[in-house]
C-alpha cells in the first residue's frame, strides 16, 4: 500500500535524501525542509520503497502537502 510522506510544517524543500526506487526504513531521513530559517528533517513513517517524489528542491510546501510516496 502506498503512503504519502506529508510536510509536518510549511517551508521550503532544502534537500531530498532519497530517489525513486530507493528502499527506506522507518525513521530514515527523507528530506530536509527549511522554515523560519531552521532546517527540519522529515523522516520516513514506515519501511518501503520510494515510488514517487512529489516535490523538488526549492519548492515551497504547505503543511500536509505530500512530499514523497512510499510503497511496499
Amino acid at each position: 500500500m502506498a503512503e504519502d510522506v506529508v510536510a509536518p510544517l510549511a517551508g521550503k524543500v532544502l534537500s531530498i535524501a532519497v530517489a525513486v526506487g530507493d528502499a527506506v526504513e522507518e525513521d530514515d531521513e527523507v528530506l530536509v525542509l527549511e522554515a523560519m530559517k531552521m532546517e527540519t528533517v522529515v523522516y520516513a513513517p514506515s519501511d518501503g520503497t520510494v515510488t514517487a517524489l512529489r516535490v523538488a528542491v526549492g519548492d515551497q510546501v504547505e503543511e500536509d502537502d505530500p512530499l514523497v510516496t512510499i510503497g511496499e
Binding site: P8, L9, A10, D27, A35, M36, M38, T40, V41, Y43, E63
Partner: peptide, 20 residues
C-alpha cells in the same frame, strides 16, 4: 524562542515538529 522549543522537543522525539 520558537526554534528553541522545537529543538528541545526534537531531542525527546525527533518526529515531533513543534515549530509552528
Amino acid at each position: 524562542a520558537a526554534r528553541v522549543a522545537h529543538q528541545v522537543g526534537a531531542e525527546a522525539d525527533r518526529k515531533n515538529y513543534l515549530l509552528m
